[in-house]
Design a protein around this nucleic acid. Structure first.
Lengths: 230, 230
DNA sequence: CCAAAAGTGTTCACGCTACACCCATGC
DNA sequence: GCATGGGTGTAGCGTGAACACTTTTGG
């Protein structure tokens, strides 16, 4: 081999999996099932294998715990501190994933000892996983302003109020309902459905779905999703 | 070792090195000095070693070609396609670096066959390095709006016009001089020096330096650098 | 005095903010 | 008919865009 004299390393992917439940942003964690630190809470992860890319590995890990494919997944960054894993040198590529919390496979979660935690009530995590989560949160906040990734966290159909609650959870502050509604509607990316959700009011709130095709069409024409001024 | 049955991989860092020369954004490339593709233009790179972090490796690579330390350096992303390097599976962590083009060590550059290229007149590059450059450019455009990284590309002292030329090069469009000046001055991050630069006008333009201490102080108080509305 | 770049003033339009107000409906 | 969340109207303010204008000084 050309590079045979060079060092080689173990590579892992670790996934920060976000979900949104009513009005709280949540994180999916699981109890690590091998040494070291077996039994501690951890991000869902796994080692990279010879014949897959890092994205492949991340999707594999996610599918294993959630049973889901076609999840929103984004590479976050690499963590390579020498002693981040006390057992051996492992370089971790962190990913962050957004999933609709209602979609996951309950049975799989139980099997893996996985659990959803509210973002500001996290347990202790192994290694540098807490740093990774913080970085993922920063990334989520940044990206949610300029890309329509929020919809990945909601069910197919949602009310404007639900959407606003999601952004309030991400940015941890109140958003003026009237202005938020106008802003999001003015982009013309939501399809209004003929049904109303009457769980929260007598009047009922219209349900909407995100028009991904229109978003892609507009994006190709130079449109940019932008909620920075909310 | 705990993980002995797992696969291990070669890891490389590749650095996208930006510089700014008068009114053009430039990239530092070098002629690859080992097989495969020896003699082709390439990003400056190297393999990760056992006892260093990825950041260490990137600084080592940069110091080798430029002779500089204390360079602005930022992790970009990981490239792990199976066949990106035809010789063997190598996973590359791309970095992007910003340097003041006047600072570099000419002798080292000559020694390594390195050369500055204008960003829109790049030669053919090995492997996926062109993709890496494109990603770095996008990152630079994004980051320059919300962080004062432009100053890394300029000499210690600069005129407002030079600063504007830099942003025009990054965003590849004209910026209204009057509005740019007001915007940048309103942040209060520039120290005006008692000297004028008379190279470009009879009247002369005041030189300024970036007040990093003040930036950090303001940032701690919640201030955000923001040129998004330029 | 004049050219040419540095730097200032001013108007306009647009978009966010804040808050008042109307709407629909189950009880 | 009234309480409740859904949804609309609107005045005011801040800021970017555009461009006219003033300043400085070497030739």
């Amino acid at each position: 081999m050309t590079y045979s004299e060079k060092d080689r390393f173990y590579l892992a992917v670790d996934c920060v999996i976000f979900g949104f439940d009513n009005d709280k942003l949540k994180l999916l964690l699981y109890k690590r099932d091998f040494e070291p630190q077996k039994g501690m809470w951890s991000l869902m992860g796994g080692f990279l294998r010879k014949n897959e890319t890092l994205d492949d590995a991340a999707y594999r890990v996610l599918a294993r715990i959630t049973g889901l494919r076609n999840i929103y997944l984004d590479q976050l960054s690499v963590f390579s501190e020498l002693d981040r894993d006390p057992a051996d040198r492992v370089i971790s590529i962190a990913y962050f994933a957004l999933i609709n919390i209602l979609d996951y496979d309950q049975e799989l979660l139980r099997q893996y000892g996985a659990q959803w935690f509210t973002i500001d009530e996290l347990p202790d995590l192994i290694f540098d996983h807490y740093d990774i989560v913080n970085r993922a949160l920063r990334r989520l906040k940044r990206k949610a302003k300029t890309q329509p990734i929020g919809f990945e966290l909601l069910p197919e159909n949602f009310t404007i109020t639900q959407l606003r609650n999601l952004y309030e959870a991400i940015y941890q502050r109140q958003i003026e309902p009237a202005n938020f509604r106008r802003k999001i509607m003015s982009m013309g990316l939501l399809n209004r459905l003929p049904m109303k959700d009457k769980n929260n009011s007598r009047k009922g709130a219209f349900l909407y779905s995100f028009n991904k095709e229109k978003y892609e069409m507009l994006t190709a024409k130079g449109f940019s999703f932008d909620l920075s001024g909310i």
